[in-house]
């Protein structure tokens, strides 16, 4: 039973983690992209459609990665080349992504899709890939020279530019990486989690991913921890409900009363915990100046226009 619950949590956590790790790289380079939800929706519809057409979930996932990246370039062009406001542009990207995916997907409603099944320990290839991705991103950002450049661009684009680092080019790459990851996260929903397409099936997960990045104070490993915590809250809420009283009676007395108490907490309160936790973490980070300086990309959200 425990194993099954862990698999459920891992499945719930993976799309959050994928979208968040991409956004983390983008934010480390100083670009705040609020369009995650829209990019995920585009990835979900692409993954489903291409998967169905080719019969291969893997090709579907790859197509979603590409579409996610290309779609994010729209955002990159506006915010990086035209120096438009990142907050508003990100919101526009979400509107556009939800609308376009709904329109493209109208033909797919009511069709079962192809499913990417488990390959190892009951978990699917994308889950295992996401762990590899974590290692690669963590190593890249903190142990390689290009990674250092990404962080430098996010911390002070003026200094980085003065040192000859191509600020705009690096930001383009970071945004595209974020888009690719969000696309994959969307494909995870429509190929692994629930192999089907319905409009707005992302159901707000893109916004949770945004919260996760901050919750993790821009550290890759903490993103994974956070994603698992968020996943555990969702799954735990349902598991506790499903625990029948007779099962609970089998536990020791204190656990019994804990589960009983948890059952009586309104579900809305539990659902709001991740958001409240994110606010608390944000406050803790910003209160501690040293912590803030180490981890927060100082130029987050600021447009950069190089002087000639």
């Amino acid at each position: 039973m425990l194993e099954a619950i862990l698999i459920s949590i891992a499945t719930a956590a993976t799309p959050l983690f994928l979208a968040a790790i991409g956004e983390l790289v983008s934010e480390r380079a100083g670009v705040l992209n609020l369009g995650v939800e829209g990019m995920m929706a585009m990835g979900a519809v692409t993954g489903f459609g291409i998967g169905l057409a080719t019969g291969s979930p893997l090709i579907g996932a790859l197509a979603a990665v590409i579409v996610g990246a290309v779609f994010s370039l729209l955002f990159a062009f506006l915010t990086l080349t035209l120096a438009s406001n990142q907050v508003a542009t990100g919101l526009a990207l979400t509107l556009l992504g939800l609308g376009v995916s709904g329109q493209i997907g109208e033909a797919y409603v009511g069709q079962p899709g192809v499913r990417m099944g488990p390959v190892f320990l009951g978990l699917d290839p994308i889950f295992w890939f996401s762990l590899v991705l974590l290692v690669v991103v963590a190593w890249f950002l903190f142990h390689t020279k290009p990674g250092l450049k990404v962080r430098a661009v996010g911390d002070s684009h003026v200094s980085a530019h003065a040192l000859g680092v191509p600020v705009i080019a690096i930001r383009y790459a970071a945004v595209a990486f974020g888009g690719a990851c969000a696309g994959l996260a969307g494909a995870y929903l429509s190929l692994v989690y629930t192999p089907q397409w319905v409009e707005a099936m992302t159901a707000g997960r893109g916004w949770i991913a945004l919260a996760l990045v901050v919750f993790a104070s821009w550290r890759p490993v903490r993103v994974l921890v956070g994603a698992w915590l968020f996943g555990a809250i969702t799954i735990g809420q349902l598991q506790i409900q499903a625990m029948s009283l007779s099962t609970i009676a089998g536990f020791a007395a204190p656990l019994d009363s804990i589960v009983g108490a948890l059952k009586s907490v309104p579900s809305q309160f539990l659902s709001s915990l991740p958001y409240l936790a994110t606010v608390v973490v944000l406050v803790l980070i910003s209160r501690n100046r040293r912590l803030a300086l180490v981890n927060t990309p100082a130029c987050l959200g600021q447009p950069f226009v190089p002087d000639r």
Binding site: S8, A12, V198, I235, Q239
Partner: peptide, 13 residues
Amino acid sequence: PGKEADAAKALID
């Protein structure tokens, strides 16, 4: 869909 799937899994578990 995601949440409904999770609920089904919890019940089966």
